[in-house]
């Protein structure tokens, strides 16, 4: 990845993204009751990781992801360290492939769908070879929910970026 941001901007990007990750983590731990049917968005932090700013300081980003993932572990009652083991490599993959680079809404969304399918496929394979014990129907349902949620987060991010850029005077 080629860095194009100044150190100050890179730090700010990383801090803003970490804050967004924290919001996503809290959001992920809330169960919504829609007409008696529970809806959870446990995989919502994946959207934030996918849309993580390209020029963000990697060290701060790693720490931000690590801490917020541990919080998610605690809030969900999962084994401590489980979500950081998933989120950190996912973030590295996103940076390496430049996956979340904004190429227009439609293409970015399709790109996200591809990565979600790859993620679920990885766990499905893990279950088949008995490496990971995971509730696949639940994972599939959560994946679909996250894909549906993506446009909303994308829209919010675009709006936030407009506000922040105009504040910078750029």
């Amino acid at each position: 990845m080629i860095e194009t941001a100044t150190p100050t901007k890179a730090r700010n990007y990383a801090l803003q993204a970490s804050a967004a990750m924290l919001v996503a983590v809290v959001f992920a731990s809330i169960t919504f009751n829609i007409f008696g049917y529970p809806l959870t968005f446990i995989l919502a932090p994946f959207i934030v990781l996918f849309l993580w700013p390209n020029g963000a300081d990697p060290v701060i980003s790693y720490f931000g992801i690590f801490v917020t993932s541990l919080i998610l572990d605690v809030l969900l009652g999962d084994p401590l360290g489980g979500w950081p083991l998933i989120f950190l490599p996912f973030y590295v993959l996103m940076v390496f492939f430049g996956a979340g680079r904004d190429t227009g809404f439609g293409e970015t969304w399709l790109n996200f769908v591809f990565w979600m399918v790859a993620f679920i496929g990885f766990f499905a394979l893990g279950k088949v070879v008995r490496f990971i014990d995971v509730d696949l129907p639940s994972l599939l349902k959560l994946g679909v929910m996250t894909i549906i949620l993506f446009p909303l987060v994308y829209f919010v991010k675009s709006q936030m970026r407009n506000v922040l850029v105009s504040e910078d005077g750029a």
Partner: peptide, 23 residues
């Protein structure tokens, strides 16, 4: 910075693994 960030990633990943195994 790039080298440092790699080291930080490896350290945090290993720390997560230790947490997970202990947990």
């Amino acid at each position: 910075r790039r080298r440092n960030s790699r080291l930080v990633f490896i350290a945090l990943f290993l720390l997560s693994a230790v947490f997970y195994l202990a947990s």
